[in-house]
Design a protein around this nucleic acid. Structure first.
Length: 496
RNA sequence: GCGGCGCUAGUCUAAUGGUAGGACAGAAGCUUCCCAAGCUUCUAACGCGGGUUCGAUUCCCGCGCGCCGCACCA
């Protein structure tokens, strides 16, 4: 666990991440990744792809444009629902959402009104500023999406995509054909999305440009349960927190089958278990730092029938924070695009014609990277980033014990060989302890040290980050041993 | 977006209306047979712009950025 300042200081000092354009004072809501951060993020993405595309043989990675024309975003509801009309008080400057302002007076729903409608209503109902009773100014639209004018006239309205999911829905029909009309079909995108957040804050937690990793599973809700092996996970304890207790740092361990008994689809719970395994087994988070948080009807989007956030408890962000979500979106997305585009997106499976339903596994990549920097950072007598070995930017450090007697030359040749297979880093400056410390802080799991016995053919020293223990390994075996350690096939304490 | 507080080397900080000192980190050298050791030398900062002033890092204003609260987060 690490404080916010610890995470930022480490990130900046060691090349993980920092504010974009900070040469010019920074750019709120935008972050750049340095050499270690770029590697850490890529390794997280690789692990995510391997894990979630591995859930079924018919799951694939695709890619789509980050700029979308207006029509699909109208169909998805983003143009109408992702925007608000803001009304600002001319006296105290406070801003209000127009629809909320009207609702507080009329106690009716007022979604989708234009600024002109809102202004007319404000005049008609003689609404004044709720805070200072001042006069309200003219309303103006505010959309969370970044608008773009495409082409020389800019008349073709377009937006930076607010989520990667729409790119998948737009390509569903093509992929369904190319992949020979089989369900379930999983299509994933790892890519950038953009939201004009009013108040970006807390490091990479709320950004205006961010990375999403999303898997959209298109399936037949009638038969999907038969496709997943729920029996194999029925007794797995799942960490959940109900909507009513979400503000508290609580979580219950409930067997998967108990969640099904409470009314959740078995295929939905099956995927909760897979997501939890990703965090607990592969990312090695402490169990108590992880939970699924239920969203009640008021909190979740109207088309999400079931919605649990994936949350990780982080000291730097002050508690459990969302890093992803598991959403059952029904056929909302494909039906919306079908009616707007007038394309038939229904498919025939098992002799029935259906519009596929979507189970979405959605992850914020930057939030996940931040969570790792927070949870894996240990600051005691030394600073160690206890990343899972697979995620470490540098897999192995290679050092001469001292800079004389031919040891540097030997280290250079060992490094050259290891570098062909691993992310290997060579260091000759400072004392041996200082070099170990530098590696510890960026999470390098193993170090190889060349000493005098090495020159006599008596092997090298292999040192582990977390225990600081070291063993002697024959020079010819180093690469193979490292490979097995990094794959998790053997544990360090078994090779003594 | 509103309000409050803040902004000094890469990081953490000290001091000051007369242009800044330290620690750690970094570089070079010496030393060093396993965990940030030691010695020498060096690099490196007042967020940006304007105002007041003989002189501003310091006081004032604007902007940027950050943190906290509010609002926002289909």
């Amino acid at each position: 666990m690490a404080s916010y300042d610890d995470v930022m200081s480490l990130s900046v000092r060691r090349g993980f991440l920092w504010p974009a354009a900070d040469l010019y004072g920074g750019f709120a809501g935008f972050y750049d990744y340095g050499h270690n951060g770029a590697l850490l993020r890529r390794r997280w993405e690789d692990l995510w792809i391997e894990t979630f595309l591995g859930l079924d043989e018919n799951y694939y990675l695709i890619d789509s444009t980050t700029i979308l024309p207006e029509a699909p975003l109208k169909a998805s509801g983003h143009v109408d629902h992702f925007s608000d009309v803001l009304v600002t008080c001319t006296k105290c400057g406070e801003s209000y959402r127009g629809d909320h302002l009207l609702e507080s007076v009329t106690h009716e729903e007022h979604e989708g009104l234009s600024p002109e409608d809102i202004d007319a209503k404000v005049r008609e109902l003689r609404i004044r500023c709720p805070r200072c009773k001042g006069e309200l100014g003219p309303s103006r639209p505010f959309n969370m999406m970044f608008p773009l004018g495409v082409g020389p006239t800019g008349k073709d309205r377009a937006y930076l995509r607010p989520e990667t999911a729409q790119g998948v829905y737009l390509n569903f029909k093509r992929e369904f054909e190319a992949l020979r009309r089989r369900l379930p079909l999983g299509l994933a995108i790892v890519g950038r999305a953009y939201r004009n957040e009013i108040s970006p804050r807390q490091g990479t937690y709320r950004m205006r440009e961010f990375l999403q990793a999303e898997l959209q599973i298109f399936m037949d809700p009638e038969t999907f349960a038969d496709r997943v092996d729920f029996a194999s996970v029925a007794d797995v304890a799942v960490r959940v927190c109900w909507a009513a207790e979400k503000s508290k740092p609580e979580a219950h361990d409930l067997p998967a089958k108990a969640l099904v008994e409470r009314g959740l689809p078995s295929w939905y719970v099956y995927h909760l278990v897979q997501v939890q395994r990703f965090y607990l087994d592969r990312l090695q988070l402490p169990r108590e730092r992880f939970r699924f948080a239920e969203l009640d009807e008021r909190e979740r989007a109207f088309y999400n029938r079931v919605h649990f956030d994936i949350q990780v408890d982080q000291e730097s962000l002050g508690g459990f924070k969302e890093v992803g979500g598991v959403h059952y979106r029904t056929d909302h997305d494909l039906s919306g695009h079908a009616s707007m585009s007038r394309e038939n997106l229904a498919v025939t499976v098992d002799g029935r014609k259906i519009v596929p339903h979507v189970l979405e596994l959605s992850f914020g990549v930057d939030r996940n990277v931040w969570a790792l920097l927070d949870l894996d950072f240990v600051k005691a007598d030394r600073s160690v980033l206890r990343l899972p070995p697979r995620l470490a930017p540098v897999a192995v450090g290679v050092f001469p014990l001292v800079n004389k007697d031919g040891l540097p030359e030997k280290a250079e040749s060992v490094h050259r060989e290891l570098r062909a297979r691993f992310a290997a880093f060579r260091d000759e400056s400072g004392s041996i302890g200082k070099r170990y410390a530098r590696m510890d802080e960026i999470g390098t799991p193993f170090c190889v040290t060349i000493d005098h016995p090495t020159l006599e053919g008596e092997g090298v020293t292999l040192r582990e980050r977390d225990t600081q223990k070291q063993v002697r390994v024959r020079e010819a075996d180093v690469a193979a041993t490292l490979d097995r350690l990094l794959r998790g096939e053997i544990r360090f304490d078994t090779i003594a």
